[in-house]
Design a protein around this nucleic acid. Structure first.
Lengths: 202, 202
DNA sequence: GAAAATATGGAACATTTGTTTGCATTCTTT
DNA sequence: AAAGAATGCAAACAAATGTTCCATATTTTC
């Protein structure tokens, strides 16, 4: 059983305040909310929570208490796969998404909305948002976002990537569809590797 | 085309600073980063960005500039479905996840890690994390997390919910499995409705 | 090119906020 | 009960930070 003491109250309050306001509370905010009479007391609580590894705080910076392990990475939602060229300048993104850093700490991430059924057997459905790590190469069996340069197809697709006998195979995870084996390998450009997905049932 | 002026530089910096530190920058931080000579100038930028709807700021509060539309809802990851009783006090959660408020603004959310293949045809795979809105009722066709009180099964399961002819049907989206039609309806407790999911390919 | 409008800077000021110190109180241990 | 440790408080101080005022530069308009 976890002790439900004042320290945990402070931790909960910091979390809640940050959720509601988008920035952390001051020492005096904590005092007011938890009926603590002295700022020194709240200040001490913060330091103990820091020692115990529950939160971080930048010295002498106002409103800088942050819950440890809550770090997020932000990735832009760039567009729709299969509906034109999605990867352009940062300006035409459709917003940013916060992803838990613990899971998605790849450096350069972006999101794409998936259109079509070609990866349905891999659990990627029409309308899903995939989390893509930007890279130009891929290993056998990885799911990639690839783009065709030569006009044989418009835009980009999501497929499972294989290289066999010097040929690149883009394999849809849908038994009603055929593998794509491009004649000209140079015409294929890997935009990134799919490392996660988000779905909203609505 | 979007004008790439100083205002947008400020906006980008606020976003980046917040991503990296977990709390917003001060006016002087902005000055230092963007080579702005006077705090009045940066202060003015902030106000204009606020007027144009790009960010919010609490008056007279230090480090309180936040990007508008970036609000997140936090939901605790409570455990594993089908492996014991997952829904307990907030204390034994395995961490919090930030979800974009724009999509998941239901009030009381939590996450569960899915175990098993029973919903595979609905695109919910073993290991996925589902986002659940806590509620005790469900509509026909919704995917729910349900728990059995009477010991016929241990713990909770994810199934599609139907009520037909006075009977509750819990339908696995897996053609190799049978519907669950409990004798005693009262023994079934709806814990929530699945409204989203997250997956990490690793 | 002059006038007007706008943008930026310098500096001071006001407020918020973090931090320290010492003391009183409560709890623990002996 | 006494000693010691931990906890909480009040008050003051120092630093960080938001805010304002006005002068100067820059751009726009006519």
């Amino acid at each position: 059983m976890i002790k439900h003491d004042k320290l945990m109250d402070v931790l909960d309050y910091v979390r809640r305040y940050n959720d509601e306001n988008g920035f952390p509370p001051s020492v005096r905010d904590i005092c007011a909310a938890l009926n603590i009479k002295s700022t020194a007391t709240a200040y001490d609580y913060i330091n103990r929570l820091r020692e115990q590894g529950y939160l971080d705080k930048a010295e002498k910076k106002n409103r800088s208490v942050v819950i440890r392990g809550n770090a997020t990475v932000r990735a832009p939602l760039l567009g729709v796969v299969n509906a034109g060229r999605p990867i352009l300048a940062v300006e035409d993104n459709e917003g940013y998404y916060a992803l838990p850093e613990a899971e998605f700490k790849g450096e350069d991430l972006f999101l794409l909305r998936v259109h079509g059924e070609s990866m349905i057997e891999a659990g990627i459905f029409d309308g899903d948002k995939i989390i893509v790590k930007r890279q130009t190469t891929a290993e056998n069996g990885e799911i990639v976002v690839a783009m065709f340069d030569d006009g044989t197809m418009e835009g980009a697709t999501v497929k499972r990537f294989f290289r066999r006998g010097g040929k690149i195979i883009l394999h849809p995870e849908n038994s009603t569809m055929e593998d794509i084996i491009p004649e000209n390998q140079a015409s294929i450009q890997i935009l990134g590797k799919v490392i996660g997905l988000m779905r909203s049932f609505r």
